[in-house]
Amino acid sequence: MLKKINLWHVLLIMLVLGAVVPILFMISNSFKTLRDSYTTMLNLIPIHPTVNNYLLLNKQINLLGLTWNTFFMATIVTIGKLLTGLLTAYAFRSYQFKGKIIIYLLFVATIFVPFTIVMIPNYLVISKLGLLNNILGVALPQLCDATGIMIFLKTMEKIPNTLIDAAKIDDIPNRKIFFNIVIPILKPSIVSVGAIFFINSWNEYVWPTLILKDKASFTLPLALQNYISSEGGTNFPLAMALSTIMVILPLIIYLIFQKYILNSISNSGLK
């Protein structure tokens, strides 16, 4: 029996290694010379460690500008989605109104809308607004997402009715109930949902591909794409240096909020 249990751990650890080892090699190769990346491919520790890839990268592209674009976009999307999501979930939690179930199902339905069906009209609208090659233009379509509403709604349902009713009887204005009662209770899920929103938008690829054509307006994933070629001409140490830069922020956020993030994802699936 004991032996059997160990075997399952062997399988699981192999899967974990399969998931994580490529990332370790990515970081390691980003500190190798191009030559070493071929000759000592399977060395996890570089023999001649160098930061030249990062310096070269910084010469070829505007690293700081690209990082700022990505950060700015992800921040706008995160704040926008948190605000709209909290307001909407609060309206659902505290009021009875006509068409509630229809609106709720509409939110569920948004998950099933493929981006292909909105991409031409949204491209035309963004272009009419003069927001092509603009971070705002690439943030706006990303705001249209109901997953935050669903997660907040689930958390708000755990707030006892008596608490909100008591506040209403005392004629405390809604604004105060929202900011002084609901928001503090929701703090953990706001943090975790915010972290998930930020990471997702930081990695967003589809809308930037459609909206950003001017290299100065690029986000990091678009810049990385230019360093990858299927024909084998890729300078991998350089591509891996850029990738390493891209993964640092999501990793830090995960290290700090890991427990909250995993809880939120668990909750999002509970029906």
Partner: peptide, 19 residues
């Protein structure tokens, strides 16, 4: 541990697999 790759862009994934 299993969740870690979910944090990263699919472009990074594409780069890693082409390598």
């Amino acid at each position: 541990l299993f969740f870690i790759p979910s944090l990263f862009s699919l472009v990074v994934g594409a780069m890693l697999f082409t390598w």
